[in-house]
Nucleic acid binder design. Structure first.
Length: 200
DNA sequence: CGCCCGATGTGCT
DNA sequence: GCACATCGGGCGT
């Protein structure tokens, strides 16, 4: 295993620690046609059965089972009839929590991304959770895969150094009718774009 | 830039 | 039935 791949111990911590810690890390996807990668710039934490915005609040079902498993595995779900979203499972086995990766800054594989995102302006290639999965060809076949090896052609490595001051904290996006206090939890983490552009 | 809306399938009530 | 951790096009500001 490459020493730069994030180890399971990175993920096996509280989701509220892992979500901001993922900012600046490198998401890599080895496709049959070449490598695609990008720097993670936006994440959100979904924290246990008590969190009514977390899919796992309904309990352990076929859909949410991965979140109840050990840390460092991918939770990929289908939504709105056409979109895939990519999460990483965190924390102890049995406690359902995951980080939604909401945006990345493309680094490698521009030709492949351009093909996957035909007709879309470069600035909009990967600035949303379902946009980045389409750009990287992430779908149901990645649900449950181990992110701490290269075996499933999808993993996360060390990336750029981030300063605490460059992390913007906000409430989570797109929660619709989720009740308080969950609606207003400051569990959305984003890199100030000026910081990572300088760090590349 | 912002708001509005249609697309489109699955999971849970 | 209906809500959904969304997206992109269209149109007004």
């Amino acid at each position: 295993m490459s020493p730069s791949i994030l180890p399971r111990s990175f993920y096996n911590r509280d989701v509220l620690i892992v979500a901001p810690a993922l900012l600046g890390k490198r998401l890599l996807r080895q496709t049959p046609n070449g490598m695609i990668s990008g720097i993670i710039t936006e994440t959100e934490a979904y924290n246990g059965m008590q969190d009514l915005a977390c899919h796992a609040h309904v309990g352990k079902t076929k859909r949410t089972a991965v979140m109840f498993g050990p840390a460092g595995f991918a939770y990929v779900y289908f939504t709105y009839g056409m979109h895939w979203c990519f999460n990483v499972v965190t924390g102890e086995e049995g406690y359902p929590a995951a980080v939604l990766v909401r945006a990345i800054y493309p680094q490698e594989g521009f030709d492949l991304i351009s093909a996957h995102r035909a007709g879309i302006k470069k600035i909009r290639w990967t600035d949303g959770p379902a946009k980045l999965t389409k750009a990287l060809s992430i779908d149901k076949f990645h649900n449950g895969i181990d992110l701490t090896t290269r075996d499933a052609n999808l993993w996360i490595e060390e990336g750029i150094k981030i300063k605490e001051d460059d992390i913007l904290v906000n409430t989570r996006v797109g929660l619709g009718k989720t009740p308080e206090p969950w609606l207003s939890k400051p569990w959305h983490f984003e890199l100030d774009s000026r910081s990572f552009l300088g760090g590349l």
